[in-house]
Simulated assay, not measured.
Amino acid sequence: MTTTTTTTSTTEADSLYNDLEKKSVKELLLSIHEEDKKVLPAVHNAIPQIEKLVEEVYQRMKKGGRLFYLGAGTSGRLGILDASEIPPTFGVGHDLVIGLIAGGDRAIRKAVEMAEDDEEQAWKDMEKYELSKLDSIVGIAASGRTPYVIGAVKRARTEGILTGCIVNNKDSVLAQNVDIPIEAIVGPEFLTGSTRMKSGTSQKLILNMITTSLMIKLGRVKGNKMVNMQLTNQKLINRGTRMIMTELGYDEVKAKRLLLLHGSVNAVLMAEKEEK
Results as ranks from 00 to 15, higher is better:
G93P: 04
H33F: 04
R155E: 09
E55P: 08
G73L: 10
G139S: 05
A42Y: 12
M114P: 00
S31D: 10
I244P: 07
P88K: 04
G64R: 12
V97A: 04
K235Y: 11
I80A: 13
K133V: 06
K235G: 14
E27W: 03
D117Q: 15
G200M: 02
L29E: 10
N45S: 12
A267D: 12
G64A: 02
G73D: 05
V97P: 01
E159W: 00
D171V: 02
G79K: 08
V25M: 09
E127L: 13
D117W: 10
E252A: 03
S31I: 05
S264F: 10
N228S: 02
G219E: 06
T146A: 14
G223L: 07
G79V: 13
E120N: 13
M229L: 14
T10V: 08
L131R: 11
E183T: 15
T89W: 07
V39G: 03
V173Q: 11
R145A: 09
T7Q: 13
T192C: 02
I185E: 15
I180M: 05
D36A: 11
Y129I: 03
N238P: 06
S199Q: 02
M114L: 14
N228L: 00
A115Q: 08
N177Q: 08
I166E: 01
E116F: 11
P48Y: 14
M197K: 05
N169D: 11
R60F: 07
T2P: 14
T246M: 12
G263I: 09
K222V: 04
S15Y: 06
E274Q: 12
N224I: 04
V167C: 04
S172G: 10
S31H: 07
N208C: 02
A111T: 10
A184E: 10
Y129A: 05
S264H: 13
N224M: 04
G240A: 10
V265S: 00
K225H: 03
E183Q: 15
M245K: 09
A271R: 14
